[in-house]
């Protein structure tokens, strides 16, 4: 069923139409901020929150059923843990490579290229997944709690 044709869920048709056009660029911008974290201002935290806020916009505009179809709350919780484990395992891989905790064991590359700075882009990706999924999961938890508290 088309969520645009369902006036009783979510907000008005104006908000839904604008949200439909705006959500993909927001997610793309968040991914850009995460991937270019070692080159331009921003990084994993800011980019992750931007991606999470795109899903929150989806939830507010279309109601939580549509957002649950895109990303379930359990999936968000799992993604948060996966992001944290990526960051922690990168730190532990420094020991495995024969160095110390948080050793930047990958080659540095040329500055200002996207494949540079060793493991910093990977750590940014891990933090971005963790923060975005965590923010969305806690938002969904609060929404569900409020809806079930009203009943």
């Amino acid at each position: 069923m088309n969520p645009l044709k369902e006036p009783q869920r979510g907000m008005t048709v104006i908000v839904k139409t604008i949200a439909k056009f705006v959500v993909p660029p927001i997610i793309l911008f968040g991914i850009y901020i995460v991937l270019h974290g070692h080159l331009t201002p921003g990084g994993g935290f800011a980019g992750g929150v931007i991606v999470g806020s795109a899903f929150i916009l989806l939830t507010l505009a279309f109601g939580k059923e549509v957002a649950f179809q895109k990303l379930k709350r359990s999936t968000a919780s799992v993604l948060e843990s996966v992001g944290a484990l990526i960051f922690l395992s990168l730190a532990l891989l420094g020991i495995a490579a024969g160095g110390w905790f948080f050793l930047n064991f990958l080659p540095k590359g040329h500055p200002l290229r996207i494949l540079s700075a060793g493991f910093i882009p990977l750590a940014n990706i891990g933090i971005g997944i963790k923060v975005g999924a965590g923010i969305f999961a806690v938002f969904l938890t609060l929404i569900v709690f409020r809806v079930s508290a009203k009943k």
Partner: peptide
């Protein structure tokens, strides 16, 4: 560190 953004190189 090879990171052009100094804030990120300090943070990570």
């Amino acid at each position: 560190t090879g990171a052009a953004n100094l804030v990120t190189s300090v943070l990570l």
